[in-house]
Computed example of a mutant assay.
Amino acid sequence: MKPNTAKASLDAKKKLLGCWLQLVNPVVGEMMGLGGYDFVLIDLEHGLGTIPDAANVMRAVRGTGASSFVRVPTNDAITIRTLMDQGVDGIMVPMVETPEAARAVVQACRYPPKGVRGLAIGIVRGADYGMDDAYVETVDDHTVVICQIETVEGVRRAKEIAEVDGVDMLFVGRNDLAADSGHILDLDHPEVEAMTDEVMAVAHAAGKTVGTVPSAGRNWQKLLSDGFDLVIPSSDISILRSFGQEEVAAFRTATNQGKQSKPVARGY
């Protein structure tokens, strides 16, 4: 199977930079991969895509050297198993709050006896449609399993979640964590910051990696220097939005048509 370059980099203790794909478009995915991102995160929770759309993005990204991760809408074994069959490099599951939920994620990614994934290696893309003889023996070593910690309860049980065998990474969803803790839109609130760092500490103590998104007061450079292993600062939508707003504002100024005020952009 194709090497998972992002997993290899994480195993080598390298820092990773990714890009969210909300539009779930193969052309955009290919451009981001060619642009040098370590991985693209195809977002099926908040993005505009289906499993077939995600599979087509994976095809486009495959030749760029980047890896393809997918965030599923919920902790659903059928969705996860289908994406595994399509050859995803990493699965991210939102709102994981218990070790039992984390084990369910791992089991959906694994063949028996370690999990519940159905065996169809003769037809699935992940196994090169039956042409990868070593797929069953190697797929676990090529897959990144990511549990999102996005609630106060998730933080409280983060140590237990990190200790689940097969979980590779905890990813702090700072937007939802701020909202759940009563500080909606304030990612830099001291309580949110403390919980974010607590998750990082317990993940590293368990030998797992940890990722997150930046905020106004803590950019991706600061997060990496603080010890985070992976950051996803931007999305295809935010890149288009930011560049478009800046270009329009420059045009208004240059043509003396009045400087257009820029709306506050929140999040990626």
Score class of each variant (00 low, 15 high):
203 A>I: 01
207 G>N: 04
68 S>Q: 10
35 G>H: 12
259 K>D: 11
27 V>R: 15
145 V>Q: 02
30 E>G: 01
117 R>S: 09
117 R>N: 02
23 L>N: 09
242 S>H: 10
250 A>S: 11
160 E>W: 10
120 A>E: 07
62 R>M: 09
109 C>R: 03
24 V>R: 04
3 P>F: 02
29 G>H: 09
244 G>V: 04
145 V>Y: 03
245 Q>P: 03
141 D>S: 15
80 I>R: 01
51 I>C: 04
45 E>Q: 13
108 A>N: 07
178 A>R: 04
176 D>I: 00
166 G>M: 07
203 A>W: 00
223 L>V: 08
249 A>G: 10
193 E>S: 14
27 V>S: 10
85 D>V: 08
119 L>H: 06
234 S>F: 12
118 G>S: 13
238 S>Y: 09
56 N>C: 04
46 H>I: 06
80 I>F: 06
120 A>C: 14
11 D>V: 09
205 A>T: 15
82 T>I: 10
32 M>T: 15
263 P>Q: 11
173 G>E: 11
178 A>E: 10
108 A>P: 04
145 V>W: 02
145 V>N: 05
219 N>R: 07
85 D>H: 03
221 Q>S: 13
239 I>P: 03
265 A>R: 09
52 P>T: 06
23 L>F: 07
206 A>N: 13
54 A>F: 11
170 L>C: 08
85 D>S: 05
199 V>I: 09
95 M>F: 13
40 V>H: 09
158 A>H: 05
34 L>A: 07
235 S>P: 12
109 C>F: 07
30 E>D: 09
92 M>D: 02
150 E>Q: 12
103 R>S: 07
212 T>E: 00
220 W>H: 13
207 G>M: 06
155 V>N: 08
226 D>H: 13
51 I>N: 03
30 E>S: 03
204 H>D: 08
157 R>H: 13
137 E>N: 10
197 D>I: 04
208 K>S: 11
196 T>D: 02
3 P>Y: 05
219 N>Q: 05
268 Y>E: 07
253 T>W: 12
217 G>F: 14
194 A>C: 09
261 S>H: 08
122 G>W: 11
119 L>S: 01
157 R>I: 00
99 P>N: 01
119 L>A: 11
164 V>M: 00
156 R>N: 11
115 G>S: 04
174 R>M: 12
191 E>V: 14
213 V>P: 02
212 T>N: 07
186 D>Y: 00
268 Y>T: 00
174 R>I: 15
203 A>E: 00
49 G>W: 06
237 I>W: 00
1 M>Y: 04
158 A>P: 02
216 A>Y: 04
264 V>N: 05
40 V>G: 06
140 D>A: 10
185 L>D: 00
17 L>Q: 06
221 Q>F: 14
224 L>S: 02
85 D>K: 04
125 R>P: 03
115 G>I: 10
253 T>N: 12
95 M>G: 02
228 F>Y: 15
210 V>M: 05
129 Y>C: 08
58 M>V: 01
219 N>F: 06
15 K>F: 09
131 M>F: 14
79 T>E: 05
194 A>E: 10
163 E>T: 07
5 T>Q: 13
196 T>C: 13
240 L>N: 12
80 I>D: 03
160 E>K: 08
5 T>H: 14
119 L>V: 15
190 P>R: 12
79 T>L: 05
5 T>F: 13
79 T>Y: 11
